[in-house]
Design a protein around this nucleic acid. Structure first.
Lengths: 342, 342
DNA sequence: TGGTAGCACTCATAAAGGGAGAGTGCTAAT
DNA sequence: ATTAGCACTCTCCCTTTATGAGTGCTACCA
């Protein structure tokens, strides 16, 4: 579709624009490209590339700037140019070589690293709860009618909830219910718990109110976590080199960032992807993201896909550097999680 | 020090400037003040107030703008003007009337409400861990040499940590250590735990490695939480109506906001206050806050001071509205926590 | 003596004009 | 097919000019 020369020119325009942020002119291209052709020839090619929708001119006497399509071409033809910097490699290995950490802490630090290395906003979606299996339940009385329920999963995730009861319950009953539930539920996948008939299960216990509240609580907890938790970092990076009007646009986006629910909604088109996804500009579903680029890739625990890590930055982003960085972080995280969760 | 007329004029200037954002001129003041004096007289007074350091002129032909000192005077003389709006009252009561919630969730929602109602950035410092007392410890094996430790406090706070052991440990030993620690530590204030001699305590157990790791873990956990957790919300509000240069200044501040440690450092001068504090402009210790106003007030659990809620906004802030809002939220939160933690 | 009218003065802001420079598209020549 | 040459367009930046807001000062008044 595009001949060799056009491809070279297009790639050069995008590359230069990413580096400088300035529209790229024919003269500068002739100098760097070394194709032995004059600016005039390049101008013809540029004009042609503009007709095809890969480039546009901000105004008539400016150089060319890539359209979303132009970036798309560039990203799809990155082979060779792409490489992980030594700096990045070192920082990533440093983070993941330190051991014995909390899942949450690890994800939090991953988010930080991601945003720092890519200079973009980073989002890490935590592993879904429903794939975990039930490990242990703990009932602790705060008051005789107020019980704190703590549920621990096999991946070391800890969720808690306060149960407020109508009537007081005795310590020995609490312990009994706890033991009973532990025995009955141990090892079950969390999403199987929804199908358990509570009445059936409750037959064996005396203190029905507490047991029922606990069961309902567990199901509610799953519901609460239906949209998974997201860690966000480096949202400030989106402000970098922004003009007045850009600022107003971004305000709405940052507002969405503060709410898990909205954030996940924006990300949902990439959440389920099982390989790296690069969405450029209007390729994004969420309107708030239309002027940004989103790079997302899944991470695993063992063989199972667990969650997604992603970065959000301007379409004018150094893809050749960011893509391998995101990729390597995802791999490193997967490896770390495997040893962390046993 | 200031006569009646000067006070009226100064208050009017600050009030008007807060409302409009425009420098206030003598003519406009003469119209609104109804003191029966002419603009010329007001000009004399303004000039005098400027000499005293309460006002300044952005440039010679502009009206007057309050200095930090001017805001300070205004805030110190708010009596009468101050009142809680019905809107705000309703929203606050609505949030705190719904019941049975997690401490963390409640604090998170409080942060949200605070930023929404004040249109400023909100920070809520969670109750310090060391005042809590030990309620229950839970050791769950993830693998035979990887133990998840969960510590529950009497206020329903749950902290966890993974313990990685040199040698595998048997399930019955885990249970034994867990029971032993529960018995020994139950009811102790967390800050007392630091003084316990581990060797003394360890005499009674066979599985010393696990027990020692657990003890060290608890102490480390306290250390980890020495600087308390902070919830942040509405940082975007700081971007409101910002010019290009203000944007660059604020970028550094927002970056600090992303790190608990730095954030708490900035807040530390107000953390220990036991009544409402209003810090205006350069009254702030942290240089990053020098061009903002910080309003902070403590909240309690029972009779004990538990944490601090605060908002950060431009010095040109509607103090008459924000101050009572922050105050009422703090009171409501205190009340809610009392019933939540029993 | 405190208040006021009048007036000259300053300065920000906006609109208008005018190079300079960058980069283009087009044309004609190779 | 490629290129040199050139006219053209438009942004950017600087200067100029007009406008208007608001002041400080001075002289006058009750």
């Amino acid at each position: 579709m595009l001949d060799e020369r056009k491809r070279k020119i297009l790639n050069a325009v995008v590359y230069r624009y990413i580096m400088t942020g300035q529209p790229v002119g024919s003269k500068a291209l002739a100098e760097t490209l070394n194709l032995g052709i004059s600016p005039a020839t390049i101008r013809n090619e540029l004009s042609s590339l503009e007709d095809m929708g890969y480039l546009y001119q901000p105004h008539v006497s400016a150089g060319r700037v890539p359209t979303y399509l132009g970036y798309r071409f560039y990203v799809d033809n990155l082979t060779g140019r792409i490489r992980l910097g030594v700096e990045e490699r070192r920082a990533i290995l440093a983070l993941f070589s330190s051991k014995t950490r909390e899942l949450e802490q690890l994800l939090q630090e991953t988010t930080h690293l991601l945003s720092r290395l890519t200079r973009a906003a980073a989002m890490v979606i935590a592993p879904r709860l429903d794939r975990n299996s039930f490990k242990h339940i703990d009932l602790v009385s705060l008051r005789d009618d107020l019980i704190l329920m703590v549920v621990i999963t096999d991946t070391g995730r800890v969720e808690k909830m306060t149960l407020s009861l109508e009537s007081p319950v005795k310590p020995e009953d609490i312990e009994m219910v706890q033991n009973y539930l532990n025995e009955k539920l141990s090892g079950k996948k969390l999403d199987q718990l929804e199908n358990i008939d509570p009445e059936e299960l409750l037959k064996g216990v005396r203190e029905k109110e507490l047991a029922r509240a606990a069961l309902e609580g567990i199901v509610e907890m799953m519901f609460r976590e239906e949209y998974e938790k997201v860690y966000v970092g480096g949202a400030v990076n989106l402000l970098r080199g922004l003009d007045q009007e850009g600022l107003e646009k971004i305000e709405g986006l940052l507002r969405k960032f503060e709410e898990q629910y909205h954030l996940l909604n924006m990300l949902k088109e990439v959440i389920r992807a099982n390989e790296m996804v690069v969405k450029i500009g209007d390729e994004n579903l969420a309107t708030e993201l239309r002027s940004f680029s989103l790079i997302a890739t899944p991470y695993n625990i063992g063989d199972e896909m667990a969650g997604t890590i992603s970065v959000l930055g301007p379409t004018r982003m150094d893809y050749a550097r960011v893509i391998p960085t995101v990729d390597f972080i995802a791999r490193s995280l997967s490896r770390a999680l495997e040893t962390l969760t046993g």
